[in-house]
């Protein structure tokens, strides 16, 4: 499970750290956020200790309606629960001794000038992105006619060469050789290049090339949703390759099944051409037209028409 340190959140959101001595190396493991209204009202059951707590106008105004003793008592029982950190929005000023109590039990407290809902929305987005399951694949990711096409296959089979050909045809490179894949939403995989490898590719015999410098900004893109997997493999005489396109093969990455086409490599086969067509066919299928079904239906009628009386 991925984890994020408080330090990174503080830096990304420019949060003010109330007690400079607090420990910022605490990990945050869930993207859920809680407004502790119920806890401050005295209900402490079902409190998720992994969540970041956010206090806004409503919570602080509520505490002000309580008598001083009761408010302090509620505050104490709240901060004695375990949670990664507390964020106070709209730069609301809480009583100094409350903050001191939090500091005493080493609870990191931050402040932001953002409004509560806005801050929660931004933080949720950020956390979901940062905490999403991810993996690095040995593959090439190209945007072909808007279809995120992941080319996989053994080392030396010609993935980069095929990608280069696709770029020359006007398609866009996302990542060569190492693709960082993140599952940001349910069943959605996004690929990007590791920072050092951005826009760079390696072609045997030429070495390392910078695609952006060679072909321009239009030939690259920073990230892309992955729609289709193309598996390149050496032509195996004994293996039966798909002739109709009826069988839907799937390739699983991070638990998400993606449609996959296995393309045999043999001299004389123009791979970039085939991949371009595979991407167009994918779009055609998505738009509701399936050539195979259409053809098979026609052929079935044809057979029926020829049936003896």
């Amino acid at each position: 499970m991925a984890a994020l340190l408080l330090r990174e959140i503080v830096d990304s959101f420019c949060l003010t750290v109330v007690d400079k001595n607090c420990n910022l190396n605490v990990p945050v493991e869930v993207s859920d956020i809680n407004r502790p209204g119920l806890a401050l009202a005295g209900y402490l059951q079902h409190f998720d200790e992994q969540r970041i707590q956010v206090i806004g106008t409503a919570e602080s105004a509520f505490l002000e309606t309580l008598s001083e003793n009761l408010a302090t008592e509620r505050w104490l029982s709240f901060i004695n629960l375990h949670f990664p950190c507390l964020v106070i929005t709209r730069n609301i000023i809480l009583p100094e001794r409350w903050l001191q109590l939090a500091a005493n039990r080493q609870l990191p407290v931050f402040r932001t000038r953002l409004a509560t809902t806005r801050f929660i929305a931004q933080l949720t987005n950020y956390l979901e992105h940062k905490l999403a399951p991810s993996t690095t694949l040995h593959a090439v990711l190209v945007d072909v006619h808007g279809v995120g096409t992941l080319i996989i296959g053994e080392s030396g089979i010609g993935k980069s060469e095929t990608a280069l050909d696709l770029i020359k045809r006007g398609h866009r490179l996302v990542a060569d050789d190492a693709v960082e894949v993140t599952c940001t939403e349910e069943n959605v995989l996004t690929g990007t290049a590791p920072e050092v490898l951005r826009h760079v590719m390696e072609v045997r015999g030429l070495g390392i090339l910078n695609v952006k410098a060679l072909f321009g900004i239009g030939a690259v893109r920073p990230n892309q949703k992955i729609h289709l997997v193309i598996q390149l493999e050496e032509w195996d005489q004994a293996k039966a390759y798909d002739r109709l396109g009826l069988d839907e093969e799937h390739h699983e990455i991070l638990g998400v099944g993606l449609p996959c086409k296995t393309i045999p490599v043999r001299p004389g086969r123009n791979l970039s051409n085939i991949i371009e067509v595979a991407a167009m066919n994918y779009r055609l299928n998505k738009s509701g037209y399936n050539a195979v079904e259409d053809f098979i239906e026609k052929q079935r009628k044809f057979c029926l028409g020829n049936a003896p009386e």
């Binding site: 690095t136 040995h138 080392s155 190492a178 590791p194 590719m201 390696e202 390392i208």
Partner: peptide
């Protein structure tokens, strides 16, 4: 916590 294909120069170099 990263894995790279040992036959790919870019993947190996990206591990730093």
């Amino acid at each position: 916590n990263k894995v790279a294909d040992g036959k790919s120069i870019l993947a190996v170099m990206s591990m730093g």
